Computed example of a mutant assay.
Amino acid sequence: MSWAPPPLARLLSRTEQLLSRFDETLGDAGLAYDDLRSAVTLDALLVARQHAEAVVVLARAQLLSSAIGVLRMQYEAVLRGAWLMFAATEKEVAILSAPLTPGTLQASKNLGTSVELLTAIELSSGAPPPLKLALREFRESSKDVLNSHSHAGLHPLRRHDGHFEREMATTLVASNGLTYLTAMSIVHAGGVPERQGDVNVLFTSYSDCMNRRR
């Protein structure tokens, strides 16, 4: 029997609770970002956390295409955080921590595409295999839909097919999965891997809002 997300209204409410608990759980985690790589990684992961909040706001406003566009941004922020943590060189980390100038902006544009960042993470011996798998699976399963909604392709232009609620629920579930990756990456970058258990307990209690592997 295939898994289906809960009704949209319940999923929205549960997701809002999850994000609030996320902040409570990590707010007192004793994280220590005392080096440049960890600090820049945290910045990227906090951007991902903001995008998770935005997906919920857009879902409540019934703005499906906008929510899916932000979902793509959320994925790329998580991807950037993982790349900074496990694959970026010291020079690349320095580029993304430098003051914003025309020169540093141009340098940041040369750091690689999302595909190149993902490949670098997959080649890193330090990146956890489950993180590599999750990032790859998300890309392979979602890239066509994300691109279509981001560029006003076929998916957002066929709004009359009656699939709105299921697509919005699927978007929220995908966003919650990225939020889990964000939380696990934050405790790793913060030097408190023992707090991974707290993160797992939190997300297990919201398993109805998460995608279930076959």
Rank of each mutant, 00 (worst) to 15 (best):
T101N: 06
Q62R: 15
G177T: 06
T89M: 12
Q17S: 13
L19Y: 13
E92H: 03
D161R: 01
M168E: 05
A29T: 09
L12F: 04
E16P: 14
L84Y: 10
L36P: 08
E24P: 01
K109D: 13
E116Q: 13
V115N: 13
S108K: 00
A48H: 01
L154P: 01
E140A: 08
L181G: 09
L11V: 02
Y180R: 15
R37P: 02
L146F: 10
E167K: 12
A134W: 06
G153A: 04
A9C: 07
Q17Y: 06
L146W: 13
A39R: 09
S97N: 12
G30E: 09
H163M: 12
A59Q: 08
A152L: 13
H160Y: 09
V201C: 10
M73E: 13
A54R: 15
D198E: 12
R214E: 09
G162Y: 00
Q106L: 01
S2A: 07
T182P: 05
L63N: 00
L11F: 02
A54Q: 15
A39M: 11
R72K: 01
L42S: 08
N147Y: 07
T89L: 12
S65A: 13
M85K: 14
S150H: 04
H188D: 15
R213D: 04
M1S: 07
E24Q: 11
S20F: 14
V199T: 08
L181T: 02
P5A: 03
W3K: 11
Q106M: 00
V55A: 00
L135V: 06
V145T: 10
L46V: 11
N110R: 15
L79S: 07
E122N: 14
G69Y: 07
P193F: 00
G27W: 05
Q196C: 12
R49K: 08
T101G: 08
L11D: 03
L42V: 12
T25D: 06
P129S: 14
K143V: 15
D28A: 15
M73W: 10
M184S: 14
M73R: 15
G81M: 04
M210Q: 07
L202K: 10
F203R: 01
K109C: 10
T25C: 06
R37V: 00
I186Y: 01
D35E: 02
V55L: 00
G69C: 11
T113L: 05
A152C: 11
L118D: 00
P99M: 14
Y180C: 09
T41H: 03
P130C: 04
A120V: 05
D144A: 00
L64N: 08
